[in-house]
């Protein structure tokens, strides 16, 4: 089985995340990481590959120079090789620009052997739109099985269970298919020393837009369907109160809420 797992390089959520004058994420390196939720996608890919035997897991990213760190992390966990689409023209891509580049790269990977499964995380912890998986499935004309809390492949078909706000669903589709997994799907393995050493020798292929046949005008700020017109940090919360319970804190809390018409 050949599995492509999409991984994104994002600013560390523990760090101070900022937007620049142009409204784009400040990615000044250092504190970027593999999107934590993509570790679940990598883990799912590895587990399915191990179960199927004779498989290949390709970690794919679309992103700037530092983004190969995210791919490297996936290789340390056990992915076999990496592909990075890197091109200045990608800066400022919206979801659809990113999808155009990812889909072209998946087709390119499929050129030397069909891809059975495309896996993604449930959300990237910076953009946090959760729009990408469904858009990528549509672009690649693959069955869409999203937000899997459980995923299994058997007899050329994939089955998932997903938990929505109001319902629990099971879906099935023949391969090839696109599956996004949630953090409930598994517990990602931690790369061990052997994995870290092995990853050093694994190849990461860097592709420009021309290599995957994408017109630079179709992606990045030029191709984007949205344009940021402004951004500002939220003003700090004013008049904050911190009290220690002396036996009356509950009453004071109720009075605070009543004063603010919140009860």
């Amino acid at each position: 089985m050949k599995i492509v797992v999409c991984v994104k390089f994002v600013p560390d959520i523990q760090a101070d995340r900022r937007l620049g004058q142009d409204g784009r994420v400040v990615r000044d390196g250092g504190d970027g990481t593999l999107n934590e939720l993509d570790e679940n996608a990598v883990e799912a890919a590895l587990a399915l590959a191990e179960a199927a035997g004779d498989s290949e897991v390709v970690a794919l990213t679309v992103g700037p120079a530092g983004a190969e760190d995210a791919v490297r992390r996936a290789l340390q966990m056990g992915a076999d090789r990496g592909v990075q689409v890197l091109d200045d023209a990608l800066a400022g891509s919206d979801v659809f620009g990113t999808v155009t580049a990812l889909a072209a790269a998946v087709r390119r990977i499929a050129a030397d052997g069909p891809v059975d499964l495309v896996l993604t995380g449930m959300a990237a912890l910076d953009g946090l739109t959760s729009l990408l998986p469904a858009a990528l499935a549509a672009e690649l004309d693959l069955p869409q099985l999203t937000l899997a809390a459980e995923v299994a492949v058997e007899d050329g078909a994939v089955r998932i269970r997903r938990e929505l706000d109001g319902a629990s669903e099971t879906l099935a589709a023949p391969l090839p298919a696109l599956v996004s997994v949630t953090d409930q799907a598994n517990a990602p393995r931690y790369p061990n020393f052997k994995g870290i050493m092995a990853a050093r020798k694994k190849p990461i292929q860097v592709l420009a837009l021309a290599d995957v046949g994408v017109d630079p005008a179709a992606v990045g700020a030029a191709g984007a369907r949205t344009r940021i017109v402004g951004s500002s940090p939220r003003p700090p919360r004013e008049d904050r109160v911190l009290i220690t319970d002396d036996g009356t804190a509950g009453t004071r809390l109720a009075q605070y809420l009543a004063e603010r018409k919140l009860v």
């Binding site: 220690t244 036996g247 509950g250 809390l253 109720a254 009860v263």
Partner: peptide
């Protein structure tokens, strides 16, 4: 937090509910 209480939730919450 706009309003923080350092205390035991099993004391503070029922008292707040009663006061409301």
């Amino acid at each position: 937090a706009d309003f923080g209480v350092v205390g035991d939730l099993f004391d503070v919450l029922p008292q707040a509910a009663a006061e409301i």
